[in-house]
């Protein structure tokens, strides 16, 4: 019988105003979103918010006691800093509950200009040690850190004891295998940067090639990322989930990771015990139906765990990419 645990905040993705309303109604405690430009890490066509959208969405969410967090979590290249400054100005003007920042210059601007604007440190800042987190807290008054997905739950608990701010941890969704904010693989193949342009594997560089017997080859730029036999569930080509050959292997293999999704539902009690304040669900690029299903399921699960009941999470597995899931680095050091 599990003990009652402090109920963490459930932080949910909103790629569009409609998805935001869906997440709020499905039980999110907070939603996170971005503007329609390179200032956030999901800069995809058809996604994200205009300033008017954001104003209306903040009203909608606040009326229902839900927080709105604005992701301004990419890295402005010199010469374009103004766009990020504008995004911070928008965060302050629209009354969002926090801005999620990664770049030190952007964080510095926000902290100096809007001392009352609450700042969260994005996972893109890659602050994984107590010292790194303390550096950001002391420099910019960061109130919450979104931890990189490279730590075990045990390590998260140790970090919690050594830092002066709250912890938010990813619990569900698509995971990149590389340390966040420190990966230029996609730029290497496509010429568009995850850090500077806010996009990994841009659709314009993705190619699907079928042959006569129904096999499908996926490419990013000129590089083959994977190949699927007729009927296999073909994944979207991202470099860290591709299949490659090397001298030490006779057969091509997933050199970085199999195409799996992160699902920490089984670790929820451990994460809550580790002192995690907020649980984050990935997926601003996902449909409203997906958001509704995942948010509702996690709402139930978190409430059950918080009141000491056993959570039933089987229905979440069906939502994961290719129906396969992992606890990634969180579960055990053996994953590394």
């Amino acid at each position: 019988m599990a003990e009652a645990l402090r109920r963490p905040e459930l932080v949910c993705p909103a790629g569009t105003p409609a998805a935001l309303r869906t997440a709020v109604e499905a039980g999110a405690d907070a939603v996170y979103c971005g503007l329609q430009n390179a200032t956030n890490a999901r800069n995809f066509p058809g996604l994200n918010f205009t300033v008017d959208d954001l104003n209306a969405s903040v009203r909608f969410a606040h009326d229902r006691n839900t927080k709105v967090l604005l992701a301004v979590n990419t890295f402005p290249p010199a010469g374009k800093f103004g766009l990020w400054r504008d995004a911070i100005d928008v965060a302050a003007a629209t009354g969002v509950d926090a801005a999620i920042v990664a770049d030190m210059g952007v964080a510095d601007y926000a902290a100096q200009t809007y001392p009352s604007l609450r700042l969260h440190l994005s996972v893109q800042a890659g602050a994984s040690s107590p010292e790194a987190i303390r550096f950001y807290c002391a420099s910019f008054g960061i109130k919450r850190v979104v931890l990189p997905r490279i730590l075990t739950v045990e390590e998260i608990a140790a970090v919690h004891r050594q830092i002066p701010c709250e912890i938010e941890a990813f619990v569900f969704g698509n995971i990149g295998l590389m340390a966040e904010g420190r990966c230029s693989l996609s730029n290497f193949a496509t010429g568009q940067s995850t850090n500077m342009d806010g996009v990994c594997s841009p659709a314009g560089a993705v190619h699907y090639e079928g042959d006569r017997v129904g096999n499908l080859t996926t490419r990013l730029g000129p590089f083959v990322i994977d190949r699927f036999t007729n009927g296999e569930n073909a994944g979207y080509p991202t470099i860290c989930k591709g299949r490659y050959g090397c001298a030490a292997r006779n057969e091509p293999y997933y050199a970085f990771e199999e195409p799996v999704s992160l699902n920490l539902s089984a670790l929820l009690p451990d994460l809550m015990r580790a002192g995690v304040t907020a649980l984050k669900i990935e997926g601003r690029q996902r449909s409203r139906a997906y958001v509704k299903q995942v948010v509702s399921a996690f709402r139930r699960a978190v409430d059950e765990v918080a009141t000491g009941r056993n959570a039933a999470l089987a229905d979440l597995i069906a939502l994961t990419e290719g129906h396969r899931q992992t606890e990634g680095a969180f579960g055990s050091k053996r994953w590394r």
Binding site: R149, L177, M178, R182, F256, E257, R336
Partner: peptide, 8 residues
């Protein structure tokens, strides 16, 4: 180009 928690 990239760093990871995992050793490839």
């Amino acid at each position: 180009l990239a760093l990871s928690a995992r050793c490839y």
